[in-house]
Design a protein around this nucleic acid. Sequence first.
DNA 1: ATGAATGCAAAAACTTTGCATGACG
DNA 2: CGTCATGCAAAGTTTTTGCATTCAT
Lengths: 135, 135
Amino acid sequence: MTKIELKEAGLKVTLPRLRVIEIMEQADSHHMSAEDIYKVLLNSGDSIGLATVYRVLTQFESAGIVDKHNFDEQHSVYELSTAEHHDHMIDMDSGKVIEFVNSEIEQLQAKIAEQHGYELVDHELVLYVRPKKST
Amino acid sequence: MTKIELKEAGLKVTLPRLRVIEIMEQADSHHMSAEDIYKVLLNSGDSIGLATVYRVLTQFESAGIVDKHNFDEQHSVYELSTAEHHDHMIDMDSGKVIEFVNSEIEQLQAKIAEQHGYELVDHELVLYVRPKKST
DNA sequence: ATGAATGCAAAAACTTTGCATGACG
DNA sequence: CGTCATGCAAAGTTTTTGCATTCAT
């Protein structure tokens, strides 16, 4: 079925592309950097270059197969696109990324854009949070 | 008065630091990259190195004098901190950055964090928009 | 067969660092 | 005067690109 996705995107079905999707599907973390994926490839014995991983991810992003984020500057991470849009919350202590959906915020954003004479095309919302603990 | 800010931040009052603040205050755009600031310095005849600009901006960020953003990956921009927090909207056609404040969204964010057992420390919201025009 | 995809290494873009010199308090 | 700050150049990171080769269709 990933083969079909690739074909639909006008991309040839090649080993690197299949492996990258596979790895992202099986990964513990939904969010992986090009380097992360490359490391898994190395450990699997695949000989796929890092440059190819970057190229594949870039193409996947254009094709809507993955989404790209820059939670911390100096490092992009990718995740497989989901049907439903979601935002992210980052636990500053553990670095863990939590996904959440909130339609109220989505609506507000569209409204704000409109108030300024714009149409909302996309958005990125990241909450930096800390475990609420007894002080 | 900028001198006072610097002293309060425990930073010596030096020409590079004063000039960077000056330039950011006078700039057309609120959001400047290190390179942007460096170019203005060059045109002003100051001989201040790019490395110094980066160092100064980093220190300013720690001191809360400036805020750092990564609207497009691969380029950080800085703006002088304002009393009131605001978010950003980017006109995808012109690249223009629009600032806006919306307390409803701020409140929702805090609420969402809490629902997940977290305390909201910081957040970054960027809306990517296009002029709403007749199609 | 033929254009697209890949691997490798080199380059690019942005930022940081080492070290000797110079300036602030 | 003792530090802290600066300039310059060199190194670091992350990502992109050139080019010959290989692969998918």
